[in-house]
Nucleic acid binder design. Sequence first.
DNA 1: GCAGGTTACGGATCGCGTAAAAATA
DNA 2: TATTTTTACGCGATCCGTAACCTGC
Lengths: 267, 267
Amino acid sequence: MESRALGYFVAVAEELNFTRAAARLGMSVPPLSRAIRRLESDLGVTLFARSPQRVSLTPAGETLLAEGRLALDALRAAARRTQRTETASLILAMKADGDAGLLDSLLTRYRADPDALPVTIRLCGWGAQPRLLLTGEADVALVTEPFDHTGLDTEVIHREPRVAAVASKGPLAARATLTPGDLGDPVIPDGVTDLAQLLTLIEMGRVRAASLPSSIRARYPRPGITYVDMPDAPPATLAIAWPAMSRSRATAALVRAAEHAALERSG
Amino acid sequence: MESRALGYFVAVAEELNFTRAAARLGMSVPPLSRAIRRLESDLGVTLFARSPQRVSLTPAGETLLAEGRLALDALRAAARRTQRTETASLILAMKADGDAGLLDSLLTRYRADPDALPVTIRLCGWGAQPRLLLTGEADVALVTEPFDHTGLDTEVIHREPRVAAVASKGPLAARATLTPGDLGDPVIPDGVTDLAQLLTLIEMGRVRAASLPSSIRARYPRPGITYVDMPDAPPATLAIAWPAMSRSRATAALVRAAEHAALERSG
DNA sequence: GCAGGTTACGGATCGCGTAAAAATA
DNA sequence: TATTTTTACGCGATCCGTAACCTGC
């Protein structure tokens, strides 16, 4: 199976439409159609149920979509890490302010390790870290639960209670405590990748509430936002994550540093 | 990066010789040489330090070898699992007699699970299980430590003391107990994939000793072999393993069954 | 008729093999 | 001189795009 054909397949499987997929791939429909047919014939399996009105995945197509994405990620990761070998640096992905104040002590400890490399911080949006790790764009990441663990190894380095951020003018602001059930469905609109943005939406009443680590309360004080304790909510856990398959010495050293920084903080 | 070029690269990196690699790939040397040069130019990185007398990997080549193997495995796994979707069965890889007697109760429990699929047992050689899982030729495996954990999730389901298998005529047979140090380097000749074969070699004196789970003592009684307790050796641990990335419901059910079977045995 | 996938065909690119060349010991 | 990698060159296969075709609403 050629990786090019697999890339085509994933595009079609995501769009469920040959025309849009071809546009996304920057090619015309016929070669795409033939490439998919050839892939099906090579594998000896039907991947799509086609009708002029509707393209859908067969069960075999479902598995190829899931497994194929992983394979393509691995391929991209191999290329990226190879290109970055020369520079010999470590990329740490995290959401802005997503370090629970541990970053400084973590980096200080890390630099003392003989295996340490220069560290580049890559700030990214909500939940973008797992993909950065899997595609080789980052080597380590700080992530908060919940996130997609597939293909990652993780180590919890910090836990803290949760608070609910609600609009000060809203009905929830008067409560002494809140439970996860009080918040309703935690729907975060697409395109929101920043905490300040989310808090603004809450002020505006566009989002009802958000459950956040309590350290946010001190870091983002706002008149329009009230933080309410959530004693019943599971604690917010911060973890350090890295690709399960490739733990370099430099990565291992950073994980060690994180563990020690966590111990110092908690103990 | 095309998967074909990556396959060529891995072949050359393993042979460290373009001529042999080309032979292994069933092609001639020039297109191979050009494919590698093109790969280097695409990545913008030198992968091999070449001289007519000696080809060696650069640091970038080292990372591409490690990461590239994983990517190619993922690709093969995607193809295999896709082809096997139609049959909807689960392949369990294990070494013959490598189940510590747990297999029956495991399968019985599994069949009771609503997520269960028909199970095919695939017997394989020493330590072949991890690769079968990573290339999609198997879905779950029973493995004994030590084995290569990369890319796998595992759960220990059984521990038992170790015994040393030594030649009855040899000097070690008279000892009441043995330590790991007494056994010397545990060198197993290539091509030995079977326990009976190994025991024969020990009888013949070709192999000095082997440290094995104690349940082997009852299963392979032989006049020429004496089993000696090893109270100081770490216990032999049997684990169930599956690909870290893709845990299907059927796989999860088998892992659950294994855990329950282990509890029943130990409790 | 129309939207969308598939075939048909011509041109360009890519990959491969044979043959010759360059490089190192 | 011998071994190994690299260039040179010609052929075939593959991939792509335009145009025509087929199918279900």
